[in-house]
Amino acid sequence: MWQGWPIERVLILFTGLAFILIAVQVTLFHSRQNFRHWAMWVPVIELPVFAVTAIVLSFVNAGWLRWLFALMMLVGMGGGVYGAYLHTAGVKQRVGGFSQSQNFLVGPPVILPLLITAIAALGLLALFWG
């Protein structure tokens, strides 16, 4: 089944599977915080959509789906950067702010939204590589 698949196609499939795993983790983290900010819903909703689009695209190479995927990956990259900003602001709001390294351990994970940005960038690279 995998014989003959170009690396671009495999990477798009990997992108979709990675978005599923990240979606589970983000949903757990944000539900633990009771979705205190409206922006907490954004990755919970968009990541499964990104995942399904990537997985379908890896099996159905339709032109409109490629452009939809590209648009979603651009949104994902921007959303990841915005999420990192919000998470950094959340760490700053904790008692002691940035001066307490403990706040980076127990506060909002600053790196997780950047992981979304990185996976979305990987999806774009895979899409336009060939």
Rank of each mutant, 00 (worst) to 15 (best):
V44F: 03
V44R: 05
V44C: 11
V44Q: 02
E46G: 01
E46I: 12
E46K: 09
L47V: 01
L47D: 03
L47M: 05
L47Q: 06
P48E: 06
P48G: 03
V49P: 00
V49S: 00
V49H: 04
V49G: 02
F50M: 09
A51I: 08
V52D: 08
V52K: 08
V52M: 13
T53S: 11
T53Q: 06
T53H: 02
I55W: 11
I55L: 14
V56K: 01
V56C: 04
V56H: 05
V56T: 09
V56E: 01
V56G: 02
F59H: 15
F59P: 05
F59Q: 15
V60L: 15
V60H: 15
N61E: 06
N61P: 02
A62Q: 13
A62D: 13
G63M: 05
G63T: 11
L65C: 00
L65H: 04
L65E: 00
L65F: 03
R66A: 15
W67H: 09
F69W: 14
F69T: 13
F69S: 13
F69G: 08
L71P: 00
L71E: 02
M72E: 14
M72K: 14
M73C: 15
M73I: 11
L74G: 13
L74S: 03
L74F: 12
V75H: 02
V75P: 00
V75E: 02
V75F: 07
V75K: 06
G76M: 07
M77E: 05
G78S: 11
G78C: 10
G78V: 10
G78K: 07
G79Y: 07
G79A: 06
G79W: 07
G79M: 05
G80W: 13
Y82W: 10
G83A: 09
G83Q: 10
A84R: 06
A84I: 01
A84S: 13
A84G: 08
Y85M: 07
Y85A: 01
L86G: 10
L86Y: 13
L86K: 14
H87T: 02
H87D: 06
H87S: 12
H87V: 01
H87C: 03
T88E: 01
T88I: 03
A89Y: 10
A89P: 04
A89E: 15
A89R: 15
A89C: 07
G90P: 03
V91F: 02
V91I: 14
K92D: 03
K92P: 00
Q93L: 04
Q93V: 02
R94P: 00
V95K: 13
V95C: 00
G96Y: 10
